[in-house]
Simulated assay, not measured.
Amino acid sequence: MEDVRSRYKRIFDNGSDTDRMVFFSDAVFAIAMTLLVIDLAVPEDRHGTAGEVLLNLWPNFLAYVLSFTIIAINWLGHYRRFRVIKTHDSRLMLLNLTLLFFVALLPFPTSLLSSYSGEAPAVVLYAFVVGLLSALQWAMWEYSYRKGFVDPSVDDGLFRWVRLNQLVVPVVFWTSIPIAIFWDGGIAMWSWFALFPLNIIVGSLSRRY
């Protein structure tokens, strides 16, 4: 006979859909994106011209645009994958909550980066969190497919293609961490632009494969 713990896990841990996970995740993504704008505040002392204020705020605006784009890309990937992830268990829920923890945290390293642009601790923290977002999305996709939660229309080739493309961001951002620590934080930030050509290259190669 099935014991109580086994029945609890079977009834309460496993779900036949992912609707509530998706709705909750959407809310966290939206709140995190909204919190990013807090750093774009006009100084209250009103010294200098409007042009000087805008010039002084450009690092904040750049950090805002960067982080908004990163959260938007992560939300879009999350939305697309959960169109084919049909069921879940407690481990997938835990992975999703861990992802949302770092999504909600991103406004802090963004603020630190805008205030201390180019300084190694700020660059390292930011690069670590951004890379971790994509790594967690990779882990959720890998786990969901291995457990059979993904719609049968996703075959092995499509699964591998999505998985491979998710590794580009962690590689670029985590590679910048030793550059910031042992060389220069500003150069490490410039290295993030390698994301664009690398995405094109990996996408092209993976489609051929």
Rank of each mutant, 00 (worst) to 15 (best):
L54N: 02
S191M: 10
A41Q: 04
P107K: 09
W192L: 09
F101C: 04
L198G: 04
V171C: 15
S90R: 15
F196C: 03
V37C: 06
A30S: 07
G15Y: 00
N165T: 12
N56D: 10
T87V: 11
D26K: 06
S204Y: 13
F108H: 02
V169A: 10
T87H: 05
E142V: 13
I11Y: 07
F173V: 07
R91K: 07
I179G: 00
V171D: 10
T110W: 02
L133V: 07
M1E: 12
N60F: 05
F68I: 12
L198W: 04
Y126E: 02
F23R: 12
F29V: 12
W174N: 12
A120W: 11
L158A: 15
F128L: 15
R207I: 12
N96K: 04
T69P: 04
L36E: 13
S25E: 04
G185E: 08
S6F: 01
V28Y: 11
S134F: 03
L36D: 10
P178D: 13
D45P: 02
D13V: 01
I73T: 12
F102A: 03
Y143A: 06
S16C: 05
K9F: 03
S25M: 01
T18D: 08
F61K: 13
N56M: 03
V172P: 01
V130S: 04
W141A: 07
L55S: 09
L54C: 01
S153F: 08
T98M: 08
I181F: 01
I71S: 06
Y209K: 14
R10P: 00
W141D: 05
F24Q: 00
G148K: 13
E2K: 12
L36F: 11
E119R: 06
S114M: 10
N56Q: 10
W161D: 03
W161Y: 15
T49W: 07
V124A: 12
Y79R: 11
A139F: 09
F12L: 03
V129A: 03
G186M: 14
